[in-house]
Design a protein around this nucleic acid. Structure first.
Length: 290
DNA sequence: AATGTTAACAACCGCCAGTTC
DNA sequence: AGAACTGGCGGTTGTTAACAT
């Protein structure tokens, strides 16, 4: 990929205090001069893999020094997470994985980490890249707006920029999404019951923000779910854990055509059912899960 | 064969929330 | 309490390979 000799000429501008606004913080990890950048060599990969196998993941900031690498911790973490982890699946995205990505994206939007969390062996970067290079174009070619999963209108298609960020009308939008939605691992791997419930609620808020932003039809249905979740949280009536509920709903939505159309199996069918019907069906989902 | 364009994807950037000191 | 650190996220860039002209 990148030519190392070229890459090494690039300075780590992100870490420079003078590079950005006054609010940007220094990132000490990358501020050291003399750190290597650009593509990883097989030797570096070996050093990093060996070290993590011996000492385990974590403490990324100090890892390079301990492992004897001239890289910043952030770079080491990224290399491990996106490329070296033994659990990663390499190679082509399979048709069933593609199908799942499409379905999850329809529900979750550009929540790559969340999507990746439900596709074993794939990273958020894999999925993001695959989306940008394959799926968004595929949807466009089928007359579907990849942001909203709705039919492309002349207006939306003429102004659509596949790789450009969405207009950020609200400065808090993107960043709130990022932190409002812990990964499935974060939700499921720790914390007491309350924290699990709160995390699930954050999941829902993030998704609702996304749907509202995209003016999606199921916005009200998601609001209904959040209300239900809140009531359950308040009253401490018997319920499954938040993760169970979220996971169960997601699983059922992913393979349900309640939200409109199917682009799979070669045909595109847009549902003509009314919004009320969708809400009713969704309400049934909620009732089943609580 | 040379040049231009596009596809693919690894790596970087800026930012944020949570944690630690 | 607040500053600094840390890990993680989504967005974006840059390089190479493959393909087209």
């Amino acid at each position: 990929m990148r030519n190392p000799s070229m890459a090494s000429k690039v300075t780590c501008s992100s870490s420079s205090p003078a590079s950005g606004s006054t609010t940007s913080k220094i990132t000490p990890c990358c501020s050291k001069e003399g750190l290597k950048r650009g593509p990883w060599t097989p030797e570096e990969d070996e050093v990093l893999s060996d070290y993590i196998r011996r000492e385990g993941e974590g403490r990324w900031r100090t890892l390079p020094k301990r492992a004897g690498l001239l890289r910043c911790g952030k770079s080491c973490r990224l290399r491990w997470m996106n490329y070296l982890r033994p659990s990663l699946k390499r190679g082509q995205i399979a048709p069933d994985e593609e199908d799942l990505i499409l379905r999850l994206h329809r529900l979750l939007g550009n929540r790559w980490a969340l999507i990746a969390g439900r596709i074993p062996g794939r990273t958020d970067n894999d999925i993001k890249n695959y989306w940008n290079t394959h799926l968004s174009k595929k949807l466009i070619s089928q007359g579907i707006d990849p942001r909203t999963h709705k039919p492309l209108t002349p207006e939306s298609s003429s102004c659509f920029r596949p790789l450009a960020p969405e207009p950020n009308l609200n400065n808090n939008n993107t960043t709130n999404h990022q932190r409002n939605s812990p990964s499935m691992d974060e939700v499921s791997c720790g914390g007491n019951e309350d924290s699990i419930k709160n995390n699930t609620n954050d999941h829902l808020e993030g998704i609702i923000d996304h749907h509202q932003h995209n003016n999606w039809q199921n916005y009200n249905a998601l609001l209904a779910l959040q209300r239900t979740t809140n009531e359950e949280n308040d009253e401490h009536i018997g319920y499954s854990t938040g993760e169970d509920v979220f996971s169960s709903l997601l699983n059922s939505w992913v393979y349900d055509e309640v939200f409109g159309y199917s682009i799979y199996g070669g045909s595109i069918n847009f549902s003509q059912s009314g919004f009320d019907d969708e809400c009713k069906r969704f309400s049934d989902h909620v009732n089943k899960c609580f």
